[in-house]
């Protein structure tokens, strides 16, 4: 994908640095370090355009990379240091947001078995009581809103499953086998045209949208960036392997029914199976995955490493909080007849 338009001093500094040679200008790195330190100290709401875009660009170096950026930047220690300056407050913010949900979960006495961990996660998922984007899409959304919805989702869905794949070598035994089983299905079971990312691209093309990865990064708001950054944070840090397992379980457990409703919304406006195939696939796939993710992946991980129960719950609750905030933004915009996307004008820095 192309380097996005900066949205403030941090993302402008990161983007400018990335266009140069790694190590060519140590003073620029030092200056950016100071700027980021100063800025994150005063940002209260971490769902901030500048912070989230900078983090997004830094994480992207570990996925498909950014066009024109030297691949050696990926492991440049100075740049990793800047990423950590942004990750620390983001993680702390997520923990504080998720705490409201996780505090109310009644933990079983002793180490929970895999069925008990799955039951805790299903209970957390059932509480998801925020405003429902899926009901709106099913009943009310117009064609422009359906396109907007796909544009938001495209930031993740065009690389669907990738952030959770980072966890595979960090797990062992039943939890590892479970994650590989889910991911193999996400990646089409050997059929590239059935990769979920490829199926999502087909849906986008069906609505006349461009399907290149990150093609709409400049118009998505901070919360959309944050939802992907959260997965990269959990996936790329081994110490957060519990959180990425909990995150996947929550995603799978809150997916079948909404995808049925999304499919209905697209059918309501006359779109055929080429467009709805992605959603229909998820109704069936995620009813399988939620069982494997809850019991074998998250449950298996907690059985092997009981201390990770709290992080499993954290990852699940964080996914739920970010999703609720995304839904609130989308529905608030749509109910007031506005677009939920950012206007396409270069940010002032």
């Amino acid at each position: 994908m192309n380097i996005p338009e900066p949205r403030g001093p941090i993302s402008a500094g990161v983007c400018a640095l990335l266009t140069g040679d790694p190590g060519a200008d140590p003073s620029a790195l030092v200056a950016l370090h100071a700027r980021v330190t100063e800025r994150v100290a005063v940002v209260e709401d971490l769902i901030d355009d500048d912070v989230q875009l900078a983090l997004f660009c830094l994480y992207e170096l570990h996925y498909g990379g950014l066009a024109g950026v030297d691949d050696r930047w990926e492991w440049h220690p100075g740049l990793i240091g800047i990423r950590q300056l942004l990750e620390e407050p983001f993680e702390a913010w997520l923990r504080s947001e998720a705490g409201v949900l996780t505090d109310s979960v009644r933990r079983p006495a002793g180490t929970p078995g895999s069925d008990a961990t799955a039951a805790l996660l299903f209970e957390l998922a059932a509480r998801d009581g925020g405003p429902s984007v899926s009901r709106h899409v099913a009943k009310k959304a117009n064609a422009e809103q359906l396109s907007e919805f796909l544009i938001h989702k495209s930031l993740y869905q065009l690389k669907e499953a990738d952030p959770h794949t980072w966890a595979i070598p960090r797990l062992a035994g039943p939890a590892k086998a479970a994650l590989v089983e889910i991911q193999a299905d996400e990646y089409g079971g050997g059929r590239p045209e059935r990769m979920h990312s490829a199926m999502f691209a087909r849906t986008m093309r069906g609505l006349g949208l461009k399907d290149s990865y990150g093609g709409y990064v400049d118009v998505v708001p901070a919360i959309t960036l944050a939802s992907v950054n959260m997965m990269s944070l959990f996936g790329l840090n081994r110490r957060l392997r519990g959180a990425i397992a909990g995150h996947l379980a929550m995603y799978e457990m809150t997916s079948s029914r909404p995808n049925q409703l999304y499919g209905n919304g697209f059918r309501r406006l006359g779109f055929d199976a080429a467009v709805t195939g992605y959603f229909d696939e998820h109704v069936e796939a995620d009813a399988v995955h939620e069982q494997i993710a809850g019991r074998d992946l998250a449950g298996g991980l907690v059985e092997a490493e009981p201390d990770l129960l709290e992080d499993v719950l954290f990852g699940a609750a964080a996914a739920s909080c970010i999703d609720a905030r995304f839904a609130a933004l989308l529905l608030e915009a749509w109910e007031n007849g506005r677009s939920s996307l950012r206007p396409l004008v270069p940010a002032t820095t």
Partner: peptide
């Protein structure tokens, strides 16, 4: 209660 029998669609939760 699944709408895609013989497969599960998660309706058991509802």
């Amino acid at each position: 209660a699944s709408a895609i029998k013989p497969y599960c669609d998660g309706t058991h939760k509802m």
